[in-house]
């Protein structure tokens, strides 16, 4: 689980940096940046499924499920929504939105670790 979480963090960070680069160069989101967004979203999906499977299987202390799955869902919706906005906002500000959204997912990832440390043990 920790490995998946690290991958998700790295994906989110790289996509955010790429989006900032696009914004600085005054580029709107192209298929490379949108693809990075999509891969980050897939990473969150995998993390969510993996945590859900662990939650079902584990006998240890249960997580605060509403909050945990709320965060996972929020992250997924945000990355997809950010990519959506980036696809339709054909200015540098579309790239800024992707950067903001990906940066926020890093905070969400940190919070997911705090909400259910057992999920990553």
């Amino acid at each position: 689980m920790s490995a998946v979480s690290i991958v998700v963090g790295v994906l989110g960070g790289l996509t955010a940096v790429l989006a900032v680069y696009y914004a600085v160069r005054d580029l709107s989101a192209d298929l490379v940046l949108l693809g990075a967004c999509l891969v980050t979203a897939l990473g969150w999906l995998v993390l969510g499924i993996a945590l859900g499977a662990k939650d079902l299987a584990s006998a240890g202390p249960a997580p605060d499920r509403v909050v945990l799955y709320g965060y996972l869902l929020t992250a997924l919706v945000m990355v997809v929504g950010g990519g959506w906005v980036g696809a339709f906002e054909r200015t540098r500000w579309g790239s800024v939105v992707i950067a903001v959204v990906c940066a926020v997912t890093l905070v969400l990832l940190m919070r997911v670790h705090q909400i259910w440390p057992g999920g990553f043990a």
């Binding site: 709107s28 906005v85 339709f88 906002e89 054909r90 200015t91 500000w93 579309g94 800024v96 939105v97 903001v100």
Partner: peptide, 8 residues
């Protein structure tokens, strides 16, 4: 092409 900064 878009709303610009407003979108953000």
């Amino acid at each position: 092409r878009g709303r610009g900064l407003e979108t953000v």
